[in-house]
Design a protein around this nucleic acid. Structure first.
Lengths: 205, 205, 205, 205
DNA sequence: AATGAATGAGTATTCATTCAT
DNA sequence: GATGAATGAATACTCATTCAT
């Protein structure tokens, strides 16, 4: 998208180039971290000149933002599909956990890239560029799943907010383990997390 | 510590300057992130010229490494003191959780700085500079606390490794909430986490 | 040669820029010496921004190494051409002396630059960066020319090693005279040196 | 010598300190070259603080100039003593060569330091700081020795200027060989140089 | 549609010098 | 006499961005 032609729909080849560049950006971010992922490095991996990146993306910010958006969208779709038509809140939560952790394992580079971007990309004023101003939508979504279980009496009297934070923390930490801890057993971890959450949400007898 | 005079004990004023610079580095890291925390920015916050930072620290690496070391040491001391003389593993774990979360809340900038350093500081070869080569000692410590409870029959048959990862994730995520989520209720979160862990570790009846 | 695209053959314009920058580096080295020849100074002389130098050369080392290599190659070619098809060792030596001194006079700045680089460029560990580890090839070459004359009986019983050192010293000192001593008469010096060497090498009667 | 008390005669301890610092400067220059010989390095070798060097010398320039002067003076004295009362010009020249080369070998670090200083110390405008504006006194002295031999008919019709340059080159190159060429045989070299010069100066028969 | 070329601000680090104590 | 402390300018190098071709 050249800056002098806005709002023009992107052609197929344009989209292909953008996708290719984004893929290379993800690889660079996953392998070299945020500061190692210069436009030069990304262009090198894509086998194109630096100018190409600037040609297809308004700037580094747009590229990173697009990566962030895409991975989020794919993760959201994967999770939605997994829990889509379940009715029992306990089954929903179980599906949520399993879907999250398996997406993590199967898209490790993407997740690592997203973490790098979200934690490091900054505006000139120093603030995190991709911090959503209000409520964290990921957290809010999980919280609503938990609240639904409480409302139907299927879950006990937990603090749905705190539980949402706790669960997200337990999920997010897994990507750090998956890379760099070869002994990490994702299956065992998933089972354990599912058990712990199941226990925690079970209504008092 | 000037680099041209090694092994000399540091004078009081030297230590004071070093501490001041480290404090400013922590503030910069917490507010502006790793890439925003240039030596120039740190010097600016300390109200001194850039050269002063290089005068008291052999390089940026030493400064960041010292920050990392100091905060870790203080956190470790705080936690050790809290759980020092407890015998019941359940009490130990509860103390561990509470000590971690309260240290987090009371030293938020320090924790944020440590996270920035640990996640971003790289060696010239691209590897994380402060990654411990083998086992993560923090994780190993927590795992040993859990294992002790299992060995004495005080805890049930949980996977101590997975539980350790889960708990660390739940703790580490809190710093992200504490900054940027004004509605985050640390006390409620602590209670919830203590309850969840207590439930998870309780032996089967 | 941009550092992000290796092994690619250099285009014509690339070579031109590199040559221009090397020329400016040589001038700076000849006029201001090693320590005065910063990349900024070289860029200033080339009428480009500092970044351009880094764009065409991987670093200062590559630039200086290339200058060294180029001047050596040109000097070697000039000398080889001059003495190429001579058979009589005495004629070879005479040609060697004349070729060296005339190359010196006609490429004074280049020689001065090479001397500055060879004597001052250091590796981070403090050792001379461009010192050849073993035998000095220039000296060895001259020594072999002298030895050839001895072996054929054309020269007397001189110590070929010592004579080589002596002759190189007499040649190298001329660049210092050529700059800074306006009264220095290169032609007279060449004649004198040729005579002295001729006398010294003449077999005892 | 503090700058606020000029022309004051130096005390004994002052001279001792100056001598010590100069000795350390010579060692640093010989081992690390000009650019490696920072005031910090010199002070470190002397076991004093950087300030001390600035206290006893008006600046780096004065220190280096003093080193230059001292070594020259000692070399001149050594040579003068060796050839002092000889009458035969041939004996004088022989003594000159032997005295120069043996002083070189016995004061290698000093000579190396002098070469580093003379070749590298620059004024802000880029010109060599310690270049004597007019005639090189060392060269002029040697030339006068040669001329004396010619005038008395003891030497043949050589160009005394060219011969002086040639001989100085042959002498100066030896320090480069002495360091870095472990196989260099100074005695053989001295003999060879004496022979060559003797031959060159011998009057035509 | 893509490239090569160039810029300029920014990075950590080094160093001679100054000065109060 | 001597030191520790501080400065500010200079160093090589990196990088996102721009632009003519």
């Amino acid at each position: 998208m050249r800056s002098d032609e806005m709002d023009r729909p992107r052609t197929f080849t344009e989209e292909a180039r953008r996708a290719q560049i984004m893929r290379c950006a993800i690889e660079a971010l996953a392998e070299l971290g945020f500061s190692g992922s210069s436009l030069a490095e990304i262009a090198r991996r894509a086998g194109v000149s630096k100018g190409v990146v600037s040609y297809y993306f308004a700037g580094k910010d747009e590229l990173l933002g697009q990566v962030l958006f895409d991975v989020y969208a794919r993760a959201g779709a994967a999770i939605a599909e997994r829990i889509g038509h379940a009715n029992d809140p306990a089954v929903v939560i179980r599906g949520y956990l399993e879907a999250n952790l398996s997406f993590l394992a199967e898209n490790l580079a993407d997740i690592r890239a997203v973490v790098e971007i979200a934690a490091n990309a900054r505006s000139p004023d120093g603030s995190l560029r991709f911090a959503v101003p209000g409520e964290d939508p990921v957290l809010a979504h999980l919280q609503s799943l938990l609240q639904a279980g409480k409302d139907t009496g299927r879950f006990g009297e937990v603090d749905s907010r705190s539980m949402a934070v706790l669960i997200r923390g337990a999920i997010d930490t897994a990507s750090g383990r998956l890379v760099g801890d070869p002994a990490f057993d994702l299956e065992a971890y998933t089972r354990q997390l599912v058990d712990v959450v199941d226990l925690a949400l079970r209504p008092a007898t």
